[in-house]
Amino acid sequence: MEVKIGVQHSPRELVVDSPKTPDEIAADVASAMSGGTKDGLLTLEDERGRRVLVPVDRIAYVEIAQADQRRVGFVAGGA
């Protein structure tokens, strides 16, 4: 799953490719937002085991979607 997190006062969003299901990610986000974490952080782990920690009070939005299939190809007929 691809998770996009908008952070307040930041021009770019964070993108994490998570191995979790959309329901698991939504539960993690809801728990963090409702004060379910002691440290006030949303912690997500990507497919490679890297962790992303975001302060809950800085989250603007969270988007959960299927990861796009990356296409490799060429376009015929250039300039």
Rank of each mutant, 00 (worst) to 15 (best):
A60M: 10
M33Q: 13
A60T: 10
A27G: 07
K20C: 06
K4V: 12
D68M: 06
V72S: 12
G36W: 04
E2I: 04
R48Q: 07
V29L: 05
P11W: 03
I5P: 03
A27Y: 01
D23E: 15
V29M: 04
G77H: 10
I64A: 02
M33R: 14
R58P: 00
D28I: 03
A60K: 14
E47R: 13
P22E: 03
K20A: 08
M1A: 10
V54R: 05
I5Y: 03
V72W: 08
I5G: 02
V52G: 04
D17I: 11
A67R: 12
I64H: 05
M1I: 12
V3A: 05
E47L: 03
E13A: 15
A65D: 13
Q69P: 01
R51Q: 14
R58L: 09
G49K: 09
D46F: 05
G6A: 08
G36A: 13
V75L: 14
Q66M: 12
A30N: 14
V15C: 08
E13D: 15
I25W: 10
V29E: 06
T37S: 13
D68Y: 05
S10W: 08
V75G: 07
G36V: 12
G73F: 04
A27I: 01
S31K: 15
D57R: 10
Y61Q: 00
